[in-house]
């Protein structure tokens, strides 16, 4: 069987990619994609920990991952709606140009 560490390293790598995208990309949609990557990295972690854990009969890790998927969907729905509402009034989703609020 593939050792647990491989999954954890993969998850950490994907999480870091997502975090980098979320912080460095200036396009709001690209930042949103980064956030999705981070959430999916967590799912790999949760399911791997569940599979290699002592209590395989307790489904907590799997259930948690399912909930994360559902919450991520809700988050994307709200996020895209907010992005559209900003785009309608400003004609841009570049985060550097959203500078009405600062100081």
């Amino acid at each position: 069987m593939v050792p647990l560490n491989w999954y954890l390293v993969l998850a950490a790598f994907i999480f870091s990619c997502g975090l980098y995208a979320a912080l460095a990309r200036r396009n709001a949609i690209a930042a949103l994609m980064g956030i999705e990557l981070m959430l999916n990295a967590v799912n790999i972690n949760l399911v791997a920990f569940w599979r290699y854990g002592e209590f395989v009969e307790r489904l907590e890790g799997q259930v948690f991952a399912l909930f994360v998927i559902a919450v991520a969907a809700a988050e994307v729905a709200v996020g895209l709606a907010l992005i559209i509402s900003v785009y309608r009034s400003r004609r841009t989703v570049n985060l550097d140009e959203l500078d009405l609020l600062q100081g």
Binding site: A22, I35, M38, V42, N45, V68, L82, R90, L98, L100
Partner: peptide, 20 residues
């Protein structure tokens, strides 16, 4: 609208980090 979007982006990143 800008406040909502900024809150969303910061908040989702923080929530994902917390989840990890």
């Amino acid at each position: 609208a800008e406040a909502g979007l900024k809150y969303f982006l910061y908040g989702s990143v923080a929530a994902a980090v917390m989840l990890y």
